[in-house]
Each structure stands twice: as structure tokens, then as C-alpha cells.
Design a protein around this nucleic acid. Structure first.
Length: 534
RNA sequence: GGGCCUGUAGCUCAGUCAGGUAGAGCGUCGGACUUUUAAUCCGAUGGUCGCGGGUUCGAACCCCGUCAGGCCCGCCA
């Protein structure tokens, strides 16, 4: 059974109506690590609906969280906002400094700025959660009731956090962080509590009272989270392994939520996604791939497959080079399989059966529209990469595919894929080994390995290519002909051609590539090869 | 120091919950295709299941220990 179906089954045991929740702090650019958070939730929700459950899938935007520091991508003017809530401060402009104009005129905030492109990507990926703005929820009083309980039972909550996390809280700790005189959540101390007011004193010498029914502050994270579970009615949440450790925020949260009078949600811990060879994803170090950027390279189904095929507790090493080719080709293979037919065989071992079911489940989760079958395109990424590099315009790509019988007509799906492929080829992520490289200078090492017969074929090749008309068909006929002229296998002519032109043993179909190149350049390269051997 | 997760074929992983002859894909190698889609098809290759104990008729799986990597236990997702 696919992991999402396993989670759905666990939920089904508890009831038939569920709220699956996800949450992210919009503190900077979103990356595909964040995608795992939201896709894990999406897949659980989808699997649960497939299992006949009634599911509300929500994405809580943690806009009430404070700006922690002036990140590298921010200008120095942000110093004044450190500690202030992300949904209450201006977005950065191009130069990194605050865009006061949009903030004042449209209320365009820091949180909006980073959230918007992510939401766009989500739409393309087929994720449509109900959005909940956390700051707005505080301001509109959604947290009232639970904030009151938290403050009333401050001692009990303190005891829980200290016992479960094993750390000691400061003497003036209080389960409500009031906003200070400058709108920040730090540099402030709670001095008293009389519902609904929390009295405070800040390091700027000011003091005041925070009305917890009006969102003049927020619950600290370890209480904020369970309080959300409470008022939203969350029954299932997937979260990163940082929260999942013993003593982490889930283990305190599951107790605190009960103090608040609710039940903890079914947890699912997921691992991080790192970038191949570059370590963990991190927005601040620039070591990041955004969902938007990833979508420029591969279609959304493949991005979904990346998450779907790995169990949540497995770390994913995202590779935008050859790994992406392998992933994409795997996607093609999977989409052309008929899982029902495979499962109908009766001599399957338990192991084989599990494997087929998991593959089928992963593909169900990879579909952008739930329930929609994924059509095989019959064109592998490798092949398309080849065509995209050798054919300048799209029409020629389609003509080639039709000629080879791979496709009968061009679909929007294929066009879409070709567009992304061209993007990928132009990007720095495209792997060198996939790039078609015609040599500029002869590769002596490869040439020296040619035997006598092959060297004669090389000369013959120069002759026949000089004589031929410079078209794909003619070149395609001339290469094997040069070997046939010497009563040798056509295969050996290709070996010679690859060695001379690309310095490799095997390669992509040569004729269309050569046809796109200058005849004289190719001939002079071949002649140089002949010379080198003499 | 305490805890959680991970460790299985060259690579990515499944299989661990319900113990029953070590699996898949990729890669590699070989063959086929008398003009090659780095294609396709066929075949082969490949593992002291991190290590050491224990329980059991039987352990990758359960128990104890141990090593390695990651993470958490700092009002930070």
C-alpha cells in the first residue's frame, strides 16, 4: 500500500471527517523543501478522499511569526522590523529595502510577497488548499478562546513544556507574546495578566497592555501550533523531522492541545530535501531551488512523483542534472504500465505485489488532477533532450517523432514538455553528459584506438560525406555506406564517426545533428582526424 | 547527556508494523536489430541486509548492545 493510503487508513479508523493541515512561515523564498510539506499533506488528503473520507485540506500561512533577522536578501532598512510579524511589515523591493508604497496603498506585506509565487506554483501542481492566514486569524479573534485557556493555565503549560522538552523556562515566561511599543514580539516582558489583557514592559522603556482577543500579540510557537489544531479542528498533520523529535514541538503540542480541550492530530514526520552535492536546502545561503524554477524544468507530475515515490521518512537528494533525467524516464516507464493487469497475475509473490501497488499508488498521487489517468507520451526525456538540441524549431521535432512512429499527433502535453525541455537545456542544471558536443579538435586518444579497418573506414567516410548532399537523410545513408563500401558492418562506421566527431564510443543519432551543422566544418574535422593518424 | 530517524546489489530504494528460500528499477556486461531514438528487445551479472550478541525450528524483520550519518531537546518552520 502506498504511504498516503496507509495514512488514510489510519484516519479512517478514527472517523470519516477530517482536516488535514499544513503550515509554512513565509520568511523568505519558498523552495522545494516546502513543497514536500504541502504535497505530503495534499497526498494524504487525496488518499483519504479516495478512501471515501470527507476531508478539508488547509494550508496555514504563518504570517504572525516574526522576522528573525535581516536576511542576506534584505536591505539594511529591515533592521527596524526584526521581531515584527511577517504579515504586518512591508515587502522588499528589488533593492531589498521595504516597499512602503505598496504596503500603504494595497496592504502588500512581506508575507504576501513570498507567498504569491508559491501559490501560483501550487496551482500548477494541482494543490488547492483552503488558505488560512494566521495573523488574520489572531486579529479576527479565532484564537480568543484557546488563548484564554492557555493564559489561565499558564502553570500547567509551563510544566508540560519543561517536563517534555527537558528545558527550563525563564521565570517571567508567559504563554502569550505581546507586541511591544514598536510592534515587535521580542525585547518585551510580561508583567501581569487580567483577561483579556496581558500587561507588558519593553526594553524601550515603554509599557502597555495587549488584548489577546484582538491579536495584539500571539501565542509562542509551542502553544500556537496546538491552538491552531484546536480551533481549526486539525485531525492530521505532516511536519518536518525537526518538529518530530522527542521533546520537540509535536511532543509538547500533543499534550498542550489536550490542556486546551482538544485531541492531537495524527502525525506524520517527513525528512528534508537536499540538493544533490550541495547539502540541505537553505534560502539564506542561496542553496535553493524554488518550485517555480523546478517547474520550468519538469512538468508538475514529475515533481509530484518525486515526493510521492519516496516514503516521507526518507531523505530526498534532489538532483537537477542526471537525476532528473532518470526521474523523468522513470515517470515515462511508470505511466506506460498497466498496473491492474499486472496485479491480476496470480503467481505474484507478496513482495512483487507490494511493489506494483506502491508504484500504482505513486502514480495516482503524481497526477495533477486527482483521479485523472496519466497518459504515457511514448517520448523519453532523453530522446526529447536530443531532439530539442538538434532541431531548432518545434515543428521539426514533431516531424521527427511522427516519422519514427513514436507519436501520431502533437498534444499540448508534448508541447508543454518540449517548452520545459528547452528551458532546461539553456539552464545551468542541464547535465553536461546530455549535451551534444561536436569536437573542435580531433581526439587523439580515441582515434589511436581505431584498428586498421576502422582507419580505412574513416577515409572512406570523408569521401562519402564530401560527396553527399547535406541533408539528414543523405548523411544518414552515407555513414553506413562508407563501411559497406569496404564490406564492413555498418555498425563500425558509426563507431568511427563517433570517435572522430565526438570522441566517444556511442552517441545519439548522428545524421540530424550533422545536418544542423556546417558541412565544411565537419569535413575539416574529419580530415584533421585522418591526418592525425598518418 | 537524553531522544527520534536512517543504514539492504555499483546507485536509488522496496521488503521490517503481522518472522517463513534476499527483491525492483537504474547501472554494468553480453546478444539481437544487415542506416543508431545514448532507442528498443532478450539474456546475464550483482548483497557478510552497518557490526556483535540473544530469542526462535526459522531473523533483514523481534530483543539487547554497538558503530556511522542526520535531526531535535536554544521563546525558530
Amino acid at each position: 500500500m502506498h504511504w498516503a493510503d496507509v495514512a488514510a487508513q489510519a484516519l479512517a479508523h478514527k472517523g470519516d471527517t477530517h482536516v488535514v493541515s499544513t503550515g509554512i512561515t513565509p520568511s523568505g523564498e519558498f523552495h522545494i523543501g516546502h513543497l514536500r510539506e504541502i504535497l505530503t499533506g495534499d497526498m494524504i488528503a487525496r488518499a483519504s478522499r479516495n478512501a471515501g473520507l470527507n476531508v478539508d485540506f488547509v494550508f496555514i500561512i504563518d504570517s504572525a511569526d516574526p522576522l528573525r533577522k535581516v536576511y542576506e536578501f534584505l536591505g539594511p532598512e529591515y533592521e527596524q522590523f526584526v521581531g515584527n510579524q511577517l504579515g504586518a511589515i512591508p515587502a522588499p523591493k528589488e533593492d531589498g529595502n521595504p516597499d512602503w508604497e505598496r504596503f500603504n496603498n494595497e496592504g502588500w506585506t512581506y508575507a504576501n510577497h513570498f507567498l504569491e509565487p508559491f501559490l501560483k506554483a501550487l496551482e500548477e501542481i494541482g494543490v488547492r488548499p483552503r488558505l488560512i492566514d494566521n495573523l488574520e486569524s489572531y486579529r479576527s479573534g479565532r484564537f480568543n478562546e484557546l488563548s484564554k485557556i492557555a493564559c489561565d493555565k499558564a502553570d500547567e503549560i509551563r510544566e508540560t513544556i519543561e517536563r517534555v522538552s527537558g528545558r527550563e523556562l525563564p521565570a517571567d515566561w508567559f504563554p502569550w507574546s505581546p507586541l511591544n511599543s514598536r510592534g515587535g514580539l521580542d525585547k518585551v516582558r510580561v508583567t501581569g495578566y487580567e483577561y483579556p489583557l496581558v500587561h507588558w514592559e519593553d526594553e524601550y522603556g515603554e509599557s502597555g497592555s495587549s488584548d489577546l482577543t484582538k491579536g495584539e500579540g500571539k501565542l509562542p510557537w509551542r502553544i500556537d501550533w496546538p491552538a491552531k489544531w484546536g480551533w481549526v479542528g486539525v485531525t492530521c498533520e505532516a511536519f518536518g523531522k525537526d518538529h518530530g523529535a522527542a521533546g520537540g514541538s509535536y511532543s509538547t503540542g500533543r499534550e498542550i492541545v489536550q490542556i486546551l480541550g482538544h485531541e492531537p492530530p495524527h502525525p506524520l514526520v517527513y525528512e528534508w530535501i537536499s540538493l544533490k552535492g550541495k547539502g540541505a536546502m537553505s534560502s539564506s545561503s542561496g542553496n535553493t531551488i524554488g518550485p517555480i524554477e523546478a517547474l520550468e524544468l519538469v512538468p508538475p507530475q514529475i515533481l509530484r512523483l518525486l515526493i510521492a515515490k519516496s516514503k516521507p521518512n526518507k531523505a530526498i537528494d534532489f538532483d537537477t542534472g542526471m537525476g532528473l533525467v532518470t526521474l523523468a524516464d522513470e515517470f515515462e516507464r511508470l505511466s506506460s504500465r498497466n498496473f491492474e493487469q499486472e496485479l491480476a497475475q496470480d503467481d505474484l509473490s507478496r513482495r512483487q505485489k507490494v511493489q506494483i501497488e506502491d508504484a500504482a499508488g505513486a502514480m495516482r498521487m503524481a497526477a495533477v488532477v486527482s483521479g485523472q489517468d496519466i497518459q504515457a507520451t511514448a517520448v523519453t526525456f532523453r530522446h526529447l533532450a536530443l531532439l530539442a538540441q538538434t532541431k531548432k524549431n518545434d515543428a521539426d521535432v514533431w516531424a521527427s517523432l511522427q516519422a519514427s512512429g513514436a507519436i501520431t499527433e502533437t498534444t499540448s502535453q508534448l508541447q508543454d514538455r518540449l517548452d520545459r525541455m528547452r528551458h532546461w537545456i539553456q539552464s545551468s542544471h542541464f547535465p553536461e553528459e546530455m549535451r551534444i558536443n561536436i569536437l573542435e579538435q580531433p581526439n587523439a586518444k580515441m582515434l589511436n584506438e581505431l584498428n586498421e579497418v576502422e582507419r580505412r573506414i574513416l577515409k572512406e567516410l570523408v569521401e562519402s560525406l564530401s560527396a553527399c548532399e547535406w541533408s539528414s537523410d543523405e548523411i544518414g545513408a552515407s555513414i553506413p555506406q562508407s563501411a559497406k563500401n569496404l564490406d564492413e558492418s555498418p555498425r563500425s562506421a558509426f563507431k568511427v564517426a563517433y570517435a572522430a566527431l565526438m570522441g566517444v564510443e556511442r552517441g545519439p543519432r548522428l545524421a540530424p545533428i550533422l545536418a544542423e551543422m556546417d558541412k565544411e566544418e565537419i569535413l575539416s574535422l574529419l580530415k584533421a582526424c585522418v591526418q592525425l593518424l598518418e
